[in-house]
């Protein structure tokens, strides 16, 4: 009963944050550099949260997330730039095609476990990259010209929708089934949970939102190239999820924000950038081996609510 009220409080807080940033951008207090930072953070949050559903909640170690990002990016770019569709429509089409790609990859590979699944998904992401690299229609290695369309408004609402959908999914009966799959697949099977179905479902939802992020990503700069979607990009996303704490949605969000900001500021020190970045990761893993948040959610710290815990469902 109180749950819906708390939900609307969160929405209200989020909208206030949105309005403040939007106002600052419109009034020119935040220049291109900073508005771009906010958009990048938003895109990374979507990626982190979508992979959190696959790895943190369902326990399927997929490291090919950049592949779905690429599908969303290229498909939406084709629809806006080459076919002249409106941006929101192209975003949704990109996300849907990414989800379909998720199904195509998920159905055969999700029978695999652990390391094997990781390798299969990694391989898939590379295949996607190579395919785009070899299609002249999308510019091949030289890349594809894309209109600059992503605004803070699109990015923000992308994040909002992603978090609402994934948090609600996690707290539903389906979410609990996914967590059961993560905890013990054989036991989940024995409970009568269709484990393959839930793995594929989580994978498709995760791919959908990765595709959405891809659309925003593609239209946030004037060009996209296959090299932007290599396995290093997949690892970036994986790092957000692991650093935030496997199973924690807010952890994924916090890690995405922190690491995006850190890597941006480190661009001033190109020689030492990767060293410092790696050191940050090593230190966090040494002192917080279960990630910044463990499996807890930020809302657990407020007494009044226990929403969206990774693995917990309140009554």
């Amino acid at each position: 009963m109180k749950k819906s009220k708390i939900f609307w409080i969160y929405i209200a807080v989020a909208l206030v944050v949105y309005a403040i940033v939007e106002l600052l951008i419109v009034n020119g207090q935040l220049d291109m550099y900073y508005s771009n930072l906010f958009i990048t953070i938003a895109i990374n949050i979507i990626l982190a949260v979508s992979l959190h559903l696959v790895i943190g909640i369902t326990g399927q170690f997929s490291i090919g997330h950049a592949g779905f990002l690429a599908v969303g990016a290229y498909i939406s770019a084709i629809f806006t730039t080459n076919l002249g569709f409106p941006f929101p429509v192209a975003l949704i089409i990109g996300a849907i095609v990414a989800a379909v790609a998720g199904l195509i990859v998920g159905i055969p590979t999700l029978r695999l476990k652990g390391d094997y699944l990781a390798i299969a998904t990694l391989g898939f992401a590379e295949i996607i990259r190579i395919i785009f690299l070899n299609i002249d229609y999308v510019g091949g290695a030289a890349g594809m010209q894309v209109d600059y369309l992503t605004t803070w408004t699109y990015a923000f609402f992308g994040v909002l929708i992603t978090i609402i959908v994934i948090a609600n999914f996690t707290n539903s009966r389906h979410g609990r089934a996914c967590i059961a799959v993560r905890e013990d697949e054989i036991a989940a099977d024995a409970m009568g949970i269709n484990t393959t179905y839930y793995k594929v479902l989580a994978f498709a939802i995760g791919s959908f939102f990765a595709g959405l992020a891809g659309g925003l990503f593609a239209h946030n700069f004037f060009i996209i190239q296959p090299s932007q979607f290599g396995f290093l990009k997949s690892f970036d996303i994986l790092i957000y999820v692991v650093l935030g704490g496997l199973g924690s949605l807010s952890g994924a969000v916090i890690a995405a924000i922190l690491l995006t900001v850190i890597s941006l500021y480190l661009q001033d020190f190109p020689e030492t950038r990767m060293i410092i970045y790696s050191l940050v990761l090593i230190i966090v893993m040494l002192y917080r081996p279960s990630g910044l948040m463990g499996t807890k959610e930020i809302t657990d710290f407020f007494k009044f609510n226990k929403k969206a815990k990774g693995g917990k469902v309140n009554e």
Binding site: R173, R176, A177, I179, A180, E183, D184, I186, A187, A188, A190, M191, G192, I193, G247, T295, G311, K312, V313
Partner: peptide
């Protein structure tokens, strides 16, 4: 399971990061 056969697997296999009650709820999943 729907037909009425429940299996308690070897080695217990409880969902260890879930509470006792959530484990029981999952037993009634179907």
């Amino acid at each position: 399971v729907k037909a009425g056969i429940s299996h308690v697997p070897e080695g217990r296999r409880v969902f260890s990061n879930m509470s006792v009650e959530e484990n029981l709820d999952l037993g009634a999943y179907l």
